[in-house]
Design a binder for these strands. Structure first.
Length: 414
RNA sequence: CGGAGUGUAGCGUAGCGGCUUAACGCGCCUGCUUUGGGAGCAGGAGACCCCGGGUUCAAAUCCCGGCACUCCGACCA
């Protein structure tokens, strides 16, 4: 894509009121725009990141055999009354149509997915099954905060699994854990992420959260020095002061942000909706469920909180908005302009996503913008280096002169 | 939902009761000069000073009430 055609612009001036680092960098770089507290537009660069995160999640969910669907955000009151959550769930947005029928905006989708699957699951032969979606969630947070980390509207991957018994649910739960680790590895935050024992809410005693350590986090976790399992402060009183996994009593205390949460719902929702199946022995049995979430916006914000330096964002290669940032430093120099056009074409033919800064602006602006936007590989064409292209990786200091083939190899290897 | 702070041009800010005809920086437009780390000169456009009420000869400025945003806390299936 030609940067001269990108309608968003970077800016130096953002409100002193915006304290959150992820919001500062994403706003300055033109990735997001805030409409209201906790409500953001994804601009072209930001949407590309979100889509890459979404596709990584899709690949891992599909690998588990889960099937992608898309459920409605607008949900009838009646469904929420079945589970009692119309009155219980204080973050639920409620609204009335002209006909005075009442609706909820989906804060989560158990109330839709359970009756949905009830239309298709009859026999033990239909189990297990899992479905997921990537969809907008609405939660009326009393206080939106931390930039895109806690919004009132956000994209979430939520997967719901259906099982014949508790044992099968437990096995699937372990598989999801592995799958989540792969996702967090691919988006570049695995090293700072800890499996964390947390409250199970109203569903079960405990759940597991994937908590990524950053000072921007809202949660406090106790990381076991011995086995690296961590414990959310919220339940520490229950099991204090011993790690359930290894009995160690030594912890590192850190702030962290919850990037994923996995629950054994058991029969909390299959019960009220009477979701049953006929087992091989001819008996009607209740279905066991699990639910498994990852917030996409929050994941993007978490990556930004971790991957940055004083000059801007440093995107991990797998989720960067583009793979390469080609910068034509002196657009008036016809020879290097032609060279840059040729490189642009060649990279695109090699199937590399490239942002081409062809703007007629000063060198300083272009280089600063490049660092702020944070694309992993920067290619500078200035007419200075005949036959070679100046290459700098965003995460490194070193500048190298390479030819086109070497560059393509470098980018594909990241 | 409690506490605190802040709302002035597209953005960031100054001005906080009378030399105010609302100023400065960024951005934007014109022209010229520039081009390896947010360039220079000259000219120009752009503001219901958040909304509503009040005090006063006089309100961006003081008072009251909204609304919005930010931070702290509570909350966070």
């Amino acid at each position: 894509m030609r940067q001269s055609r990108l309608f968003t612009k970077t800016t130096k001036n953002i409100s002193a009121e915006e304290k959150s680092l992820n919001a500062q960098l994403l706003t300055r770089g033109g990735f997001v725009d805030k409409l209201a507290a906790g409500i953001y537009t994804h601009l072209p660069l930001g949407l590309r990141v979100i889509n890459k995160i979404g596709n990584i999640i899709r690949e891992e969910m599909n690998a588990l055999g889960a099937q992608e669907i898309l459920m409605p955000a607008l949900q009838p009151k009646a469904n929420w009354q079945v589970t009692g959550r119309w009155d219980e769930l204080d973050v639920l947005f409620k609204l009335k149509g002209d006909d005075s029928k009442e609706y909820a905006l989906g804060a989560t989708h158990e109330e839709v997915v359970v009756p949905l699957l009830g239309k298709f699951i009859f026999s033990y032969k239909d189990l297990p099954i899992s479905v997921y979606q990537i969809q907008t969630k609405f939660r009326n947070e009393k206080r939106a905060k931390s930039g895109i980390l806690r919004g009132r509207q956000f994209l979430m991957k939520d997967l719901y699994s259906f099982h014949a018994d508790e044992k099968d649910l437990g096995e699937f739960y372990e598989k999801i854990k592995e799958s989540y680790w792969k996702i967090f590895e691919r988006v570049g935050i695995k090293e700072k992420t800890y499996l964390t024992l947390a409250s199970g809410g109203t569903f079960s005693k405990y759940s597991h959260e994937f908590q990524t350590v950053t000072d921007a986090g809202e949660d406090t976790i106790y990381i076991c020095k011995k086995c690296h399992l961590s414990i959310n402060k919220e339940i520490l009183a229950d099991i204090n002061p011993v790690c359930p996994e290894c009995q160690s009593e030594e912890f590192d205390v850190k702030k962290a942000i919850e990037v994923g949460n996995i629950f054994k719902l058991n029969t909390r929702f299959s019960g009220p909706f009477n979701l049953r199946f006929k087992d091989a022995d001819g008996k009607e049995k209740i279905i066991f469920m699990g639910c498994f979430g990852i917030g996409l916006d929050r994941l993007m914000g978490t990556v930004v909180e971790i991957c940055n330096d004083e000059n801007g964002i440093v995107w991990p290669a797998n989720i960067a908005p583009f793979q390469a940032h080609l910068i034509l430093l002196k657009p008036d120099d016809k020879e290097s302009a032609k060279e840059a056009e040729n490189i642009y074409d060649a990279l695109q033919k090699a199937d590399i996503e490239v942002l081409f800064d062809d703007r007629n602006l000063s060198a300083g602006i272009k280089l600063k913008d490049g660092d702020l936007i944070g694309i992993p590989v920067r290619l500078v064409v200035s007419g200075r280096n005949k036959g070679k292209i100046e290459v700098k990786e965003r995460a490194k200091e070193e500048v190298r002169l390479l030819n086109l083939n070497e560059i393509i190899e470098l980018i594909k290897g990241l």
